[in-house]
Design a protein around this nucleic acid. Structure first.
Lengths: 113, 113
DNA sequence: AATTAGTACCTTGCAAAACAAAGTACATGA
DNA sequence: TCATGTACTTTGTTTTGCAAGGTACTAATT
């Protein structure tokens, strides 16, 4: 069981690294709000929970990567819809490169080292 | 500069997630010791420093993924050579899958969401 | 009017881990 | 014996994911 536990941990670590990248990538396509983001990430098999996502969105907003607006919900309380900014798109481009770099590094280690 | 700083941070986060995986991958090919590992990771453009690597090796040893032996150096103090164990190889296989899962998730988010 | 269920947002406390920086120790040659 | 190079370790700080608990709004049910 220990191996599984550790691999779960590594998996969680790997998620950490790309979560910010995933959020910006999704919001680059269309505005969204927290529970919808969680559902979309789940669909991509990238598990996130509220306690992780909300602080992350707030951090990204504080960095100027996102803005938000309140929108009425057809059912329940209003939703906080996040929109990516120009600055956020610029950061996303950098992250695309960063992600590619990591993928290349792994490939190098696996095949060429 | 702020964007660059944040991207550096994200890059560092991404590294975090795969570092343990990289170490096991390298040691699966041949035994090594800390400064040599640092050099090899640097060659793969995956920057790590001593303060990160040494505790990581100790953790992996404590989990039973690695063992070590002391070996004389042609120059300087003896080296601690790490060897991957069977348990370590099993964990590495799991991590191969975990890494592939993350790659697939990103791909899904980018192309199919 | 009060209660319940569903939805949404936020915060607190804890644990893990990367990193910078400083420290210890051994070997070799000047 | 002192300086230099190599190697291993530890300490303190900071970041961040996550579990758990809390607040608040809406609509349907009693």
């Amino acid at each position: 069981m220990e191996i599984i536990n550790n691999v779960e941990n590594v998996k969680s670590q790997m998620r950490k690294g790309v979560l910010e990248y995933c959020i910006l990538s999704i919001l680059a396509k269309k505005d969204s709000y927290a529970p919808a983001l969680i559902a979309e990430l789940k669909q991509a098999k990238m598990i996130v929970v509220e306690g992780t996502l909300y602080p992350l969105l707030i951090r990204q907003k504080n960095q100027g990567f996102l803005t938000y607006r309140w929108e009425e919900s057809p059912q329940g309380p209003p939703r906080k819809y996040y929109t990516i900014t120009e600055k956020g798109r610029a950061a996303l481009q950098e992250m695309d490169q960063a992600w590619q770099d990591v993928v290349n590094s792994i490939q190098y280690i696996k095949n060429e080292l």
